[in-house]
């Protein structure tokens, strides 16, 4: 059995579930009789998400319980490991979201399984009784500068999948069977006392074709709103920011691009007043076309730039907006 944990948010199936389904179908195709693809939906009030998942998998297991109303690493790991153990899953696919990457190591330890983290490619080499499954994968290392090929062999393997690395699977037309499951869940030990919404008013940073990001070079919060948001509006793009900008409180953390923020891979990435620290590049260096605007010709960002202008963003950006309006 290939188990995929279908993430949902507020009852809506996440994009990552479609990407996992694609990875699962591919694995299934590589080896006949690899078993069915089972989707697991965890949460409270998740009927709609479960129905959507039923169009992606061969079978859907639904744990709809009040205790699953809020994500918790220990609870999620326990739930997934129980299902994987009982169903003798050979592969457990988990989204490479922040939470997925947080609880997946616990699942691996519980199952005594190896963990392939944040994979961008996945291939099943062989599977035999006793020998377990041989999986090969690729993932990025050294702040996304190196692509590493890894292999593991075990009766069960836990895999997290980097968001955006697999195309979203198309939903089928005949819904698969849904089964309710009962789980023994542990007590939560990390008590959440408050939730700070650092959501951006702008959506779709990780999915957009064009991203306009600003750095400290933009100068002030007001200038950021005028220049970076102005250019983003002109290009119909969401806004990204560097850590320096988030730390300064100009922009919410949800917009941060980089090692400790989001990873984006748009067709066009525009970096406005960004120096190009390796931790920032790690979140955007796979973009198809990179444009940089910086007054310092030696700024590291220019090393990975396709088109750039050396100049003051206070002059360049308004000129660009005017030119794009033409």
């Amino acid at each position: 059995m290939i188990l995929m944990v279908a993430e949902q948010s507020n009852g809506v199936l996440s994009k990552s579930a479609y990407e996992l389904a694609q990875a699962a179908r591919q694995l299934q195709g590589e080896l006949p009789n690899f078993g069915e693809v089972t989707a697991l939906v965890l949460g409270s009030g998740v009927a709609a998400a479960a129905s959507a998942a039923a169009l992606l998998a061969d079978q859907v297991l639904v744990a709809d319980m009040p205790a699953l109303g809020q994500y918790d690493a220990e609870v999620w790991a326990s739930a997934v490991a129980q299902i994987a153990g009982e169903g003798e899953a050979q592969v457990v696919l988990i989204a490479g979201s922040r939470s997925g990457r947080e609880y997946s190591p616990r699942v691996a330890v519980k199952l005594d399984a190896p963990l392939l983290e944040d994979v961008i490619r996945l291939q099943c080499e062989s599977f035999g009784e006793g020998a377990g499954v041989v999986l090969r994968a690729e993932h990025y290392t050294f702040l996304s500068r190196v692509t590493e090929r890894i292999e593991t062999q075990a009766p069960a393997v836990v895999v997290t999948v980097k968001p955006g690395s697999f195309v979203a699977a198309a939903a089928g037309t005949t819904p698969a069977e849904q089964l309710d499951v009962d789980l023994q869940l542990p007590q939560k030990r990390l008590k959440v006392t408050g939730s700070i919404q650092e959501k951006t008013g702008r959506i779709g940073l990780t999915e957009a074709d064009v991203v306009v990001s600003g750095g400290r070079g933009v100068g002030t919060q007001e200038a950021f709103a005028e220049l970076v948001e102005g250019l983003a509006d002109q290009l119909g793009a969401p806004v990204g920011a560097t850590r320096a900008v988030v730390d300064a409180g100009w922009r919410p953390y949800a917009e941060q691009v980089g090692q400790t923020g989001k990873t984006v891979q748009p067709k066009l990435y525009v970096a406005v007043g960004i120096s190009g620290a390796v931790q920032h590049l790690s979140g955007m260096n796979k973009s198809q076309c990179i444009v940089a605007l910086n007054k310092d010709a030696d700024a590291p960002i220019f090393k990975i730039t396709d088109y750039g202008i050396v100049g003051d963003v206070k002059e360049i950006v308004p000129a660009l907006i005017a030119e794009l309006r033409k």
């Binding site: 922040r98 008590k191 006392t193 700070i196």
Partner: peptide, 12 residues
Amino acid sequence: EVDEGSETFEVQ
């Protein structure tokens, strides 16, 4: 920090 935004927490 969590998936979107952040949380305050207590843990023993």
